[in-house]
Design a protein around this nucleic acid. Structure first.
Ligand SMILES: Nc1ccn([C@H]2C[C@H](O)[C@@H](COP(=O)(O)OP(=O)(O)OP(=O)(O)O)O2)c(=O)n1
Ligand SMILES: [Mg+2]
Ligand SMILES: [Mg+2]
Length: 923
DNA sequence: ATCCTCCCCTAC
DNA sequence: TAAGGTAGGGGAGGAT
């Protein structure tokens, strides 16, 4: 359940604002002055204001008691009445952020955006002309970054600063009212408690350029650990198979699959990491607890132990108490702390705090092995899913399906797990397939069992949300929402043909079956087909030398990992993340919003022999050269090796590819084992038609798009002159920029506010568009999907969701295709780098508006114009000498036009996904 | 038709 | 502070 719930404070905020928008009001337009701008007002929040001190220090002197004090609400209304577009969340559509002042953090976060004082709006309105925003800008454009900042300070100065910091903060102080000890007990051993100055220092010393980085990084990365752990568990299961052979192996399977229905169970530990931690700390079981790296006690000079809610450490697992506050696995700690704190006064008498506990991987490993040992003994077949989760086939023990025997068995298993693990709980879902069992587990949690019988499946699934289907994540959910499909029932209305057309050949078929509760996949543990290592954190390079050094080390790492498996491979892939924006992303040392690029090469002659380290390094460096991303732009790096085969000791005889078919348990070397469960016979039979085809028809995948620090972007369709204006309810506002206004404007605002409170709401159709490469910034907001007339055919739904604008989108007043086309060409031709962000942003906004206005065709044509023009005027061909490399590389002005293309492509992709149900390429 | 490359998506 | 990895499924579109 938790895996899909990557949420953040901003998402919650957005959701709440959506709700409040239902009291929208209609307004008369006063002027067109602000027509070109899309605004977002900083400082609005709706976390319980009584308990949550917003970081915006302007929120303090808000309008309490002063009736003359106008809120941002009123300013918003004013802007709306002058034709501005006002966003409820900070999407990239926002052209200007309006704020009175900025915290340092926001300053850094928004370094590359236009952050403007409200005076700009007021004076523009007063003068009936849109003034240049720059003179009202709040950020000095010094283009500071983590390292630029450091570069300004001499080394000597830096170290002096450090010495001046008294070493008084050795020990992290527990919060005064903290009754429970052992909160990140490691803190006592941690000698450093860095200042913000030091933070930069720390970063410089510990990013990917630091020596020993990889070891430290992989030693700490939970995601790396759990991923590699899965491979280990597959091996562990193979060992179990050998040590404790099944009494009656595959014959059972055949029988059960042909004559009876199977009984599959999905077993998953409840809040795994957290429950292991609480097992040994029962005294705090009733409190909200999260497992993460950070202590979350705020930064630097702050030794009060009071959090400042800024930690971007990710929560790996949280207990169900914490979940009742809205905390989810994968959330930033700071976000979670806000959630917990915000409940103060509502449900609790006094302040509640999220307790953080450190990782204890050895303990998890021990529990995990207990779990698997138990499951192995009770099952006919066992499929590894993760360290805390597996499918088992228990068909042979269920003679009469539906007799309730299934539940008994499940409860026995749960009891065993509880005993063997020292008190950790598992939940179990039961079904006739992996699908139904998996879905049942969601209902079983926490600490329960749920059975979806074949009879009840139809009913259970019809009301199931599509996002509860395994394989339906963020992107598919969003795409379906765009089609008006929210439940499996909705999805069932799509014909198979329609499904395939929309979601692809294979996925279409899968979805068509899954939404009906049909799943014919057999349990199997697939053999490894590739191996690799990536780092997308702490990647900050300044020179090509640093990049080369890092790539070498990473190659070494992959080489070592591959060697351990005893396999060899001859296909090398280099993956790279290239930053889209300057400045540091929201997540500390994170990669931020990036374009992903990859390049691969098959090394001839390495087949079946493997690649020597030096060859690997050389190839990787060449791939990097071909990808041609500047060291400064790198935010992530990964190296993978595929086309794996068994290393035949004598180098003779069979070299089989690692497809599952035909790999026999007894015949294989350790790393190559394909333990498919049941017998290959059966498997092949079932799978042949279902999984065979890899053909192409229509693409559904899309490139999500958003800024790293913006988790959810409720995309209210651009407001046209005659359409409904969104007017937020006053409860959202807590700061008073408006008190600085000239009197006449204030009066205008008052007039507007009066109207707004009178009118009952007309609902404007808004929907979430959140996207990013990273789950942090994704949120499935089921509450925000459309209310559509349930009568129309699914394909009609999407049209209901779209605004039909009276005025077509325009670029500097131009709307005709040829005009815009020409304009864009000239823009690209005339301007060498550097481009002004303003121009780029204008074009981006225009492109998004085009798609929203159902002018996708035009949009794509114009995009092609841009791509071609950039190629023509700013791209220099570079021939690749290699015969194996068939693509031509493009080198671009360091300016960077390619960057503009990247941005626009992402924009358009994203907009298409929602507006057209996701077929960017079909046009 | 099929294969290959460069992506995107999903899950934990 | 903070450690946003990893493997597989699969789609689009070009090369063969
Ligand atoms: N974003 C995530 C998700 C999971 N995990 C780790 C910690 C979890 O404890 C473990 C198992 O993942 P689950 O999805 O099974 O989540 P939990 O077991 O924590 O909770 P649930 O009760 O929902 O299964 O994987 C993680 O580090 N980061
Ligand atoms: Mg779990
Ligand atoms: Mg799990």
């Amino acid at each position: 359940m938790a895996y899909q719930g990557f949420g953040e404070y901003m998402a919650l905020k957005a959701a709440k604002q959506q709700k409040q928008n239902s009291t929208d009001t209609k307004w008369q337009l006063q002027s067109e002055v602000l027509r070109p701008v899309t605004l977002w007002f900083d400082g609005i929040h709706n976390i319980n204001t009584a308990t949550y001190n917003h970081t915006n220090n302007n929120s303090n002197n808000s309008d309490n008691g002063n009736p003359n004090n106008l809120s941002a609400l009123d300013l918003k209304a004013l802007c709306l009445s002058h034709a501005a577009t006002v966003c409820d969340s900070l999407s990239l559509r926002v052209s200007h952020i309006i704020a009175l002042s900025l915290t340092e953090r926001k300053m850094d976060l928004w370094r590359n955006r236009r952050v403007v004082h409200p005076d700009w709006l007021l004076q523009s309105i007063a003068k009936a002309k849109l003034l240049p925003w720059q003179q009202f800008g709040l950020i000095q454009r010094a283009n500071a970054s983590l390292f630029n900042t450091k570069a300004l300070v001499s080394i000597e100065h830096e170290s002096k600063l450090l010495q001046q910091q008294p070493q008084q903060q050795h020990q992290h102080q527990q919060p005064p009212q903290q009754k429970h000890p052992r909160i990140h007990s490691t803190s006592a051993k941690n000698p450093s408690n860095p200042t913000p100055r030091e933070s930069t220092e720390w970063a410089a010393k510990n990013v990917a350029t630091a020596s020993g980085f990889l070891e430290k990084y992989y030693g700490s990365s939970r995601l790396s650990k759990i991923s590699n752990w899965k491979s280990d568990l597959k091996e562990f299961v193979l060992e179990l198979d050998l040590t404790y052979p099944k009494v009656k192996p595959p014959s059972t399977t055949i029988k059960s699959k042909t004559s009876h229905s199977s009984t599959i169970m999905h077993v998953d530990m409840d809040c795994f990491f957290a429950s292991v931690a609480l097992r040994d700390r029962p005294e705090i079981q009733h409190l909200p607890v999260a497992i993460c790296h950070s202590k979350g006690t705020g930064n630097s000079g702050n030794n009060t132990g009071i959090s400042d809610f800024t930690s971007t450490s990710e929560i790996a697992s949280c207990n169900y108490v914490a979940r009742s506050y809205g905390v989810k696995n994968g959330m930033f700690l700071g976000t979670a702390q806000k959630l917990v704190a915000s409940f103060q006064g509502q449900q609790q008498q006094h302040s509640m705090r999220l307790i953080t506990l450190p990782y204890e991987f050895e303990k998890y490993d021990s529990v995990s092995r207990s779990l698997y040992t138990i499951l192995h003994t009770v099952s006919d077949e066992l499929m590894v899913v993760s360290c805390d989760e597996a499918y088992i086939d228990v068909s042979s023990q269920v003679i009469h399906p539906g007799s309730g025997r299934e539940i008994e068995i499940a409860e026995q298993i749960r009891e065993s797990i509880r005993c063997e693990s020292g008190g950790c709980r598992a939940s179990i879902g039961i079904g006739e397939s992996m699908l139904t069992a998996r879905v049942a587990t969601k209902k079983a949690k926490p600490d329960g069992v749920y059975h979806i019988s074949s009879e009840s499946a139809a009913f259970e699934f019809s009301k199931l949300g599509v996002q509860d289907l395994p394989g339906v994540g963020y992107a598919l959910t969003k795409q379906m929402a765009g089609l008006g499909i929210n439940s499996c029932g909705d999805l069932m209305k799509l014909s198979l043909t329609e499904c395939k057309k929309r979601f692809g050949e294979a996925n279409g078929l899968k979805l068509h079956q899954f939404c009906r509760g049909i799943d014919k996949r057999p349990l199997e543990n697939k053999a490894r087909q590739s191996i690799g290592a990536e780092v997308n954190w702490g990647v900050r390079f300044q020179s090509i030398t640093e990049v080369h050094a890092f790539l070498s080390e990473l190659s070494q790492e992959v080489h070592t990992r591959l060697n351990k498996t005893g396999l060899v491979g001859n296909h090398v892939t280099l993956k790279v993340k290239k930053k889209l924006y300057d400045g540091e992303p929201a997540k500390f040392l994170g990669c931020g919003e990036c374009v992903d690029l990859s390049k691969s090469k098959t090394i001839d002659g390495a087949a079946n022999v493997g690649i020597d380290l030096d060859v690997l390094v050389r190839e990787v460096l060449m791939l990097y050269r071909d990808i041609s991303v500047a060291p400064e732009d790198l935010r992530g790096v990964g190296i993978h090796i595929g086309k794996l085969t068994a290393k035949s000791a004598a180098m003779k005889g069979r070299q089989k590819t690692l497809l599952n078919f035909g790999v026999k348990r007894s015949a294989d070397a350790a790393g190559l084992l394909s333990n498919h469960i049941g017998n290959g016979y059966n498997r092949e039979e079932v799978n042949e038609e279902e999984l065979e085809p890899r053909r192409k028809i229509l693409r559904n995948s899309n490139n999500p798009w958003a800024v790293d620090d913006l988790p959810v972007i409720p995309l209210q369709p651009a407001i046209s002159s005659s359409s409904t204006l969104v007017f937020p309810s006053s409860s959202q506002i807590d700061w008073s920029m408006v008190e600085h206004l000239p009197r006449d404007i204030r009066e205008e605002l008052f007039a507007l506010r009066k109207k707004s409170t009178k009118n009952a709401g007309s609902s404007s159709s808004t929907f979430a568009v959140a996207s990013s490469n990273h789950p942090q910034n994704r949120q499935l907001n089921s509450k925000q999907t459309y209310q559509h007339a349930s009568t129309g055919a699914p394909s009609d739904y999407s049209k209901n969701l779209k605004r039909v604008s009276d005025e077509p989108p325009s670029l500097i007043g131009k709307t005709a295709f040829s005009d815009v086309n020409c304009l864009l060409k000239q823009w690209i031709k005339a301007s060498s780098s550097p481009l002004t962000r303003t121009d780029t942003d204008l074009v981006r906004i225009y492109f998004r508006a085009l798609v929203q206005n159902w002018e996708g065709e035009k949009c794509l044509c114009l995009l092609k114009t841009i791509v071609d023009a950039v190629e023509e005027y700013h791209g220099k061909r570079e021939r690749k000498g290699k015969q194996a490399v068939c693509n031509e590389g493009w080198l671009y002005d360091r300016g960077d036009w390619k960057h503009v293309v990247d941005l626009l492509t992402k924009d358009v992709n994203d907009e298409f996904l929602v507006c057209y149900g996701g077929n960017f390429k079909k046009h």
